[in-house]
């Protein structure tokens, strides 16, 4: 099982990590050919804050953060905490998750 966190803007990856108020946390099984979510929840933050999302990622034991624009200090913090960060990604969340599952998602992917 793998937990993935994606900051959201509607149904897309939020352009800015620090300005997202909705965060999708999805648990997917590893090593299966079909992408299915075991658990999916959207956390709504009371205000946009990069620190809050970092805290959430750590407390929820998130393995991977997929986001678009993220400042180096938060990127480095998450990596230091052992969370993989795939940044500079844009596109609708489902397409992004499919690409991640198919191991096609790399930093800089644009999936519109």
């Amino acid at each position: 099982m793998e937990k993935i966190l994606i900051p959201l803007l509607d149904n897309d990856v939020a352009p800015r990590f620090d300005l997202a108020t909705d965060v999708l946390i999805v648990t997917i099984p590893r090593e299966t050919s079909r992408r299915e979510s075991l658990e999916e929840k959207v956390v709504v933050l009371d205000h946009a804050s990069a620190e809050s999302i970092c805290r959430l990622a750590i407390s929820e034991n998130v393995h991977t953060v997929i986001c678009a624009g993220i400042e180096a200090k938060y990127h480095d913090f998450l990596q230091w905490k052992g969370t993989k960060v795939v940044d500079d990604v844009c596109g609708p969340v489902d397409t992004v998750l499919d690409a991640y599952h198919d191991k096609r998602l790399v930093p800089g992917s644009c999936l519109y």
């Binding site: 803007l9 897309d12 939020a14 352009p15 800015r16 300005l19 678009a68 624009g69 844009c90 644009c110 519109y112």
Partner: peptide, 19 residues
């Protein structure tokens, strides 16, 4: 070459554009 055709806010990532 990678941003033409995208919505502005996904390219610029500006705080003003998001709010």
């Amino acid at each position: 070459s990678r941003v033409l055709g995208l919505k502005c806010l996904h390219s610029l990532r500006c705080d003003f554009c998001m709010t």
